[in-house]
């Protein structure tokens, strides 16, 4: 492993940013990004699961027999997902109502399992944590960006809060005469906005 810790961390923020570079885990990406608030909430929930599961998978990598490793990873990931689900219900119920069924679906998010299998099970704890944080933050950033684009086009402004803190409100960024594209916040709009963002990102070379 010649890569430095900083490289493990920053690769998730740009070079391998999910879901744009690693086109993985698209179900929550398309499903919850109707607003920036939901995108950030979902991204941070996934990041938490990713960091915790990466740490644990890495700690247990020598104990877990390779034949049952996937089952063990799933147990670890599922546990943290339920932790997130219960904490959200206890503290930010409104966000839980918005994200709904997508929170339990983090269990089968292939980014989380992918990092456990491809990285954490082969590396020691600190790099695994850095990897989880990088990929998690990258995912949060992507979801927030996609959510912001859709919310802007769909409603003409941005409004919400982050986990009940930091409320923000930017109404009518395009002027009062702007006619919102309700299409952008509906399901087909998710595909089109994601496609446009992929196109823009691919204009910039990744290396």
């Amino acid at each position: 492993m010649a890569k430095s810790l900083a490289q493990e961390f920053t690769k998730g923020l740009w070079k391998e940013i999910p879901p744009f570079r690693l086109v993985l885990g698209l179900c929550p990406v398309l499903g919850v990004t109707t607003s920036m608030k939901n995108g950030i909430g979902m991204g941070l929930a996934t990041a938490f699961v990713l960091i915790c599961s990466n740490i644990l998978v890495s700690l247990l990598r020598k104990v877990v027999p390779s034949k049952v490793r996937i089952a063990c990873f799933i147990i670890i990931i599922a546990t943290f997902v339920i932790v997130v689900e219960m904490m959200m219900q206890a503290f930010v119920y409104g966000l839980f109502l918005d994200l709904g069924v997508f929170i339990p679906l983090i269990v089968v998010n292939c980014i989380v399992l992918g990092r456990a299998e491809a990285f954490a099970s082969k590396n020691s704890v600190i790099p695994s944590m850095a990897d989880g944080m990088g990929i998690g933050l990258g995912f949060t950033f992507s979801l927030a960006a996609l959510g912001a684009v859709r919310e802007l086009l769909g409603t003409g402004g941005l409004a919400g809060d982050i986990f009940g803190f930091l409320p923000y409100e930017l109404p009518n960024l395009f002027g009062a005469s702007f006619e919102p594209f309700a299409f952008a916040v509906q399901a087909p709009g998710a595909f089109i906005c994601l496609g446009l963002m992929l196109f823009l990102l691919n204009l910039v070379p990744s290396k």
Partner: peptide, 12 residues
Amino acid sequence: MVVVLTILSVIS
């Protein structure tokens, strides 16, 4: 395999 899976499930 059985022991590891059992312990993990119990702790979880």
